[in-house]
Write a protein that binds this DNA or RNA. Structure first.
Lengths: 151, 151
DNA sequence: TCCATAATGGCAGATCATGCCATTGCTTGT
DNA sequence: ACAAGCAATGGCATGATCTGCCATTATGGA
């Protein structure tokens, strides 16, 4: 993984639909070896995939909530079931098991408060493994989907 | 925004480099109107862009931290400066102003604890507007970059 | 029912993707 | 220093894709 690879990754993080010829020009390579490098990065998992980014405001998704969850102690045994249940909650775009006061931190994106209430009552509070829920509402987005800084 | 648009968005969220002909087949359209719809979704901002997804493990980024930050009271006036400072911190992939105990919640992705220590001391604790810092380490990823559920 | 509007499908020229091969540049061993 | 081996590069050719244009078809209102 040299500088050219890092520039390829940086460019594709900014625009994932860059054509190979354009990408090759930007990193100072001809199309053939450029495509070769991209394929290698994909195969190695450094580039795990490509995604369209949805503009939340334009799509009518006006509410982002960071939900801190704690689970019942006995749920530690079937962690897989907890993971599956959390990942299946509609509107959950990301979820991590974390250290600190909470056991899990989930990011939920919904159209409005009413939709969040439905998610909460129908999909979170109804899970018997969930002990406490603490909702932190996003008031303003500072940044999102920023390119990662490669080592 | 009808069902076909939603299916287009869903497909492009799963694979942002889907070719237009493949996408057209999947949504049951011919390539021309399909591309037309994609362009309209892009122009309207519903599709805000395309990004390559970096596989953290494969890229050697083994540590994700969710940092709760509070800022000094007088910093409320120049909020823009706070935002700029937070977004410029290396490794920050997302940051939101939130309700709750903290003022901001930032997600930081770095190779290891040593790198996180450097980010903390060199770029966070050195900001005089930052009052308190509370680090929540991600122990395990449940899900990430999940497609949003459109209204 | 008829008209107006919008969306669709197909076509054609240009661009792009991609496998193959000779060449270049660099590292290793003598 | 020199030669050999190896990995990476660049160019080419074929096939697929993109994309604008136009006729046709579906849709919705009067």
């Amino acid at each position: 993984m040299d500088d050219i690879d890092k520039r390829i990754i940086a460019e594709l993080q900014r625009d994932g639909r860059l054509s190979n010829v354009e990408l090759a020009e930007r990193v100072g390579l001809s199309p053939s070896p450029c495509l070769r490098r991209v394929r290698l990065l994909e195969d190695s998992g450094v580039i795990a995939g490509y995604r369209a980014v949805v503009g939340h405001k334009a799509a009518g998704l006006n509410l982002t909530v960071f939900v801190e969850l704690t689970v019942a102690r006995h749920s530690a045994e079937n962690a897989a079931a907890v993971h599956r249940a959390l990942a299946a909650i509609p509107g959950v775009v990301a979820c991590h098991m974390v250290s600190g006061n909470a056991d899990f931190l989930a990011q939920i994106v919904v159209p409005d408060l009413a939709a969040y209430e439905r998610v909460l009552t129908d999909h979170i509070l109804s899970l018997d493994m969930i002990e406490t829920v603490r909702s932190n509402f996003a008031l303003r987005m500072v940044c999102e989907g920023q390119p990662v800084h490669l080592p």
